[in-house]
Design a protein around this nucleic acid. Structure first.
Lengths: 191, 191, 191, 191
DNA sequence: CATGAATGAGCTTTCATTCAT
DNA sequence: GATGAATGAAAGCTCATTCAT
């Protein structure tokens, strides 16, 4: 009769994910999250002590999934090329998968110290993974190379999230493009 | 008797810039902007019809300066290398110059359609300039190359804005790094 | 056209006095006070930064009036008997005059430190006035005698405030009674 | 197996006494009382139908103890002097004994009709006991004399409850003082 | 043009109480 | 009897915006 453990916690996080992702933090009301989750407003506060904390928990879950998936994909790759592809694929596919929730990537309550901390921690961890991958491949200044590669990928975020005609093919094209550019530079693209 | 035309308009925009940049859009109150500008709250509404519009005007002014400066710098550059350097220098120096106002780059009121439009327009214009520069240098897929280069630069935003120990030398290093990586790829960095 | 200075401040305090006095602090809502005062809820907060502060301001005004009136009455009295009568008259007449607002004397938000402070200050000032009066009349242990006299008066508060049949004559009787008892003790009342 | 009858009832009342007495009625949460009593929140409602009723039961128990003790002490006294001393001693010693729970004497939920009724009933009973004692000693207007004596004692409540340096000696001094003043009036205290 | 007192819709959060287990 | 997760009404306070002066 009773549901799985963590049932309501998940229910709330899922509802928050949809609403924060669709309307943004400030435009989403706690009462809406409760409605969306099918529970009472007060129940939210049994699981999360404030709106900020709820947002943070939701974001944390997302970060963990992102990093977990990344590890998986890197394990299955061997050569530098393959690994770069894995990172690019994962990064862009992630955005492609959350096209419906573009507000996840804007309008966080950035005055919340704890949240900012967490965002930075995620960033650091992500970059460290990519950097150590590059380092193993014998690339100098791995930190900066890693950051740059991530930047090259992240610039496509906007296209993916806001362009409704963005296709799977467009995605693949950008993956290949980023890997090649990172690897060879733009010289190869000159006439 | 009255000061230069646009006097108060500028006063307000400067005050808004400082406050939005320091505390973010939602945490900044219209009354604070009025105080900071040294005028009455009601006066704000003689110049801007809403908080969103004020934010937009402030942002627009910033965008125009950014793009104007970019044009200047590109005019003074000839070779591709020089031009890439100009773009990188300009991009990162811009962030370095507004270190004190990090909130300018987060927490915009992204539910405002007009504002989102403007942000996208800025992005398109910026990218188009870089792309056309690359095109003139004979680089294929100039759009995507331009976007990637901008992404490589933009990834350093966080470091610049949040790391208080970030020096002018760090800045120069990143400029060179980005240009080289974009030009040659990471191959040159292998042992 | 414009009203007297302090107009709205007085309006609010009067409304608060009636409502707090009728229903008590916790049962009175800020919105009710606004309604009673004929102004908007937000306007309250232009004059008082919180419900507690409003309560305190209201109480302070009352205290000041009480003590001011006491001074007046004591000035007009000469002999000890007359002065005791003045204090008793003033004390009990005060309660009689605010019969309609009995909750003024119960249910203060006593977790508010500043308010507690003020209540004690009032008590101290009141007692000091009576004590110094007794001292001038050559009575030893004036402090304690003053306190006791006030206690003898205050015990009638309940009757006055809650007994609807309490008359002006009952009042006068108690005034005389208290003065005589304080002066002569109960011995004179023995058969 | 189960403990003495009334076990939990007592447990709850004791917990309520400590918390209401420390923080006041409104600032004490039902959940805190449950925690303090070491039982579940819901269990409270098996014994008391509401927060008000719980407060009332707690108060009632206290009143009964107070009056019971008073009877005991009066029985052991013979002369008027002795009996006055007994009343004074009991009254002030009671406050002295509950110094740690000062909020018991402020901030009752006075909108509760039944509670107000009970408070008045206690007052009436207490006063009736003292009055009948005075009557037996042949004192006229025993009601009013009794009330006045109680008032003289009660005025020291504040000192006792809020002055942390208040000593046992201070207590004794006030007991003697009140009895003497009630008996002889202030005349004896004149130079 | 400029002002700033006034507005009131709207939000987060609390907590006494219930009831299925 | 005992539990404690769930409820939802209710209230203090904020702040963008207006408009009489």
């Amino acid at each position: 009769m009773s549901a799985a453990p963590g049932d309501k916690w998940t229910l709330i996080l899922d509802a928050a994910y949809r609403l924060f992702g669709t309307k943004g933090f400030y435009e989403t009301k706690m009462s809406e999250i409760a409605d969306e989750a099918g529970i009472a407003k007060g129940t939210l506060y049994l699981y999360f002590s404030s709106k900020e904390e709820l947002f943070m928990a939701m974001t944390k879950r997302d970060h963990d999934r992102f990093l977990g998936k990344l590890d998986q994909m890197l394990e299955q790759s061997e050569s530098l090329q393959e690994q770069l592809r894995a990172v690019a694929d994962h990064h862009l596919t992630y955005y492609f998968g959350v096209k419906r929730y573009p507000r996840l990537f804007f309008q966080a309550p950035n005055n919340d110290q704890a949240l900012m901390e967490m965002m930075h921690a995620f960033r650091r961890t992500y970059m460290a993974k990519v950097a150590s991958m590059l380092e193993r491949a014998g690339i100098e200044e791995a930190q900066m190379h890693g950051a740059s590669f991530i930047g090259m990928l992240d610039v496509f975020k906007m296209d993916i999230l806001t362009n409704n005609n963005f296709t799977e093919a467009d995605l693949q094209h950008r993956i290949q493009f980023a890997v090649r550019l990172f690897h060879d530079g733009c010289r190869g693209a000159r006439d």
